[in-house]
């Protein structure tokens, strides 16, 4: 598939409030918001970028359920079936005694599977090469990338809007 090169405007902001205000303003004026990069999540940016709510919790649910059933089964098998030991005259199959381990295993499995699911779905692994648009977005800069929809708006118009919201730097980029 052949794609026409698109011109996008990149704005670098000093904090998330100015970025959010600029993004809202751009959206209001009918400018497409392509992407936003920031060192941490920005409250309220999801609906502007059109991000659906994450499906990561399902990984957590599966991990938690797995940890719960496996640890309950293992404790029952080890203390009531395979090697019953009399501990303080309690029944071999004592649910109250199994709860702490079950609880910990549930959290451990849920946590590990969530991290694994996140790494898998974002295709992250050690040694992966990334090309951030500006390396400062991992530290203290907030980048907004917008794209004009029609010819009625020039590159200068967009940059004026961004400057109105206190953009620190802005430039144009051609994406193939």
């Amino acid at each position: 598939m052949k794609q026409r090169p698109v011109r996008t405007e990149v704005g670098v902001f000093g904090d998330e409030h100015t970025l959010l205000a600029a993004a809202k303003d751009c959206q209001h004026r009918g400018i497409d918001i392509v992407e936003a990069h920031s060192p941490y999540p920005i409250h309220g940016i999801d609906p502007i970028l059109g991000i659906r709510s994450s499906r990561l919790p399902y990984w957590t649910l599966v991990g938690g359920t797995l940890g719960l059933t496996l640890s309950l089964w293992f404790q029952y098998w080890s203390s009531a079936s395979d090697y019953p030991l009399n501990v303080g005259g309690k029944p071999f199959n004592s649910l109250p005694a199994f709860i702490p381990v079950t609880f910990e295993m549930l959290i451990l499995f849920a946590g590990l599977l969530t991290v694994a699911g996140f790494l898998l779905t974002s295709r992250l692994f050690p040694g992966r090469k990334t090309h951030p648009i500006d390396s400062r977005i991992t530290n203290d800069r907030f980048v907004l990338i917008v794209q004009r929809k029609d010819a009625s708006m020039t590159q200068g118009d967009i940059q004026t809007i961004l400057q109105h919201h206190g953009v620190l730097e802005c430039w144009s980029e051609m994406n193939e």
């Binding site: 000093g14 904090d15 409030h17 100015t18 205000a21 409250h43 309220g44 919201h165 206190g166």
Partner: peptide, 11 residues
Amino acid sequence: RGWSTTESPSP
């Protein structure tokens, strides 16, 4: 609700 009634431009 997270609306800011006065937009505060930061330096």
